[in-house]
Design a binder for these strands. Sequence first.
DNA 1: CTCCAATGTGACTACCCAGTCATTTTTACA
DNA 2: TGTAAAAATGACTGGGTAGTCACATTGGAG
Lengths: 200, 200
Amino acid sequence: MPKQTFFNLDPTKRQAVIDAAVEEFAQFAYEQASLTKIVEQCGIAKGSMYQYFTDKLDLYLYVVDLAYEKKRSYVSQAFAQEGDIFAVLEEYYLQSYEFARKHPLLHQVANKFWDSKAEVLRPQLEEGRLSRARDFAQFLSDAMERGNVNPSLDPEAVFFVYHAVGKDLIDCFDQRRNSQFLKQVLDVLRLGLTARKEEV
Amino acid sequence: MPKQTFFNLDPTKRQAVIDAAVEEFAQFAYEQASLTKIVEQCGIAKGSMYQYFTDKLDLYLYVVDLAYEKKRSYVSQAFAQEGDIFAVLEEYYLQSYEFARKHPLLHQVANKFWDSKAEVLRPQLEEGRLSRARDFAQFLSDAMERGNVNPSLDPEAVFFVYHAVGKDLIDCFDQRRNSQFLKQVLDVLRLGLTARKEEV
DNA sequence: CTCCAATGTGACTACCCAGTCATTTTTACA
DNA sequence: TGTAAAAATGACTGGGTAGTCACATTGGAG
């Protein structure tokens, strides 16, 4: 959490600090990112940064939080709508793409977060992964009960496949990957997961 | 490529250098790995390392090469055997697991290679990814022609799904993931990809 | 034994980084 | 206007890095 001093700042200056930090953390993972470059970019003294944040980690987590707050404002509507698990997931990824298109830097910040190797980020990463796994497991078991997903499949394996594909769908997002491609990928998964009469 | 001096070295000493480098590059990606720690670990002078290798990158690529050479000696037999695409892939991952079990450090070196963010590694990474994509695309189009894979699916999407899952299968390899789990994951993919009569 | 090329060496350079702190500047209020 | 608290500052510390180079050691040929 930033210190009070940061929130007392003139909004223009505060935004300049945020912008510079977002730019740096979009380009480099936590370890490679340079606080020195950030302060140079936004034109404040090194020491000033330490009036606003306790350390590099504090600033980083604040920026990652901003990115995910914004992302949540996009993807949350996917879960609000009705429909089977496949429709919800398609909407989720479409909204993720929209977020990435509108806020490319925040998108990169959010993505790079999961690549962080720094020891200090271990707790946050672990907690994040766990909470995602919990949410998806719940979502999946609901879908299995409602009969959308083949109940004979190992839920752990289903989760594993979805997680791997989902991560890459968002990771490898770029202008070339359109919603048509997304549909095709989700189709492969749908065919693999849907309950069916014919056994192959 | 190492310099001739490296190959003139006493085999014991040469192996000590390799072991120390493998240990470091198994634990840290290229950028985070420290040449200083490597020379300390194997007990040679910093300058000596530069008698053997032109720079850190030279040493790194040599070690990555060793890792992949060893790995190839495991997985190559998967492609030698007969059987449909699903059988070949199961064998491929089983052999990858065997490699990881027998050579955990080399496994980590090979895996970490793809995480590298360093600009100097860009060409190698790009070439590596391209050549893998080419191989798998060929493999896939053969399977589609032979009728194992649903021909109505977009080959790019199929490749994308397989690549994502395959990467994570190897990435997340650890003692808990046994061949039973692997079968379940490949089952999800098989169901998603196999040509079928019933439309869902 | 001598000599010279090949090899080994580690202090050193030049560069990066996060974080500190004594000092100065700004601000707010009496 | 005077003063005290808040905020801003940037030189500095201590630590890390890859790579260099003048010098020391080794080993084999003559």
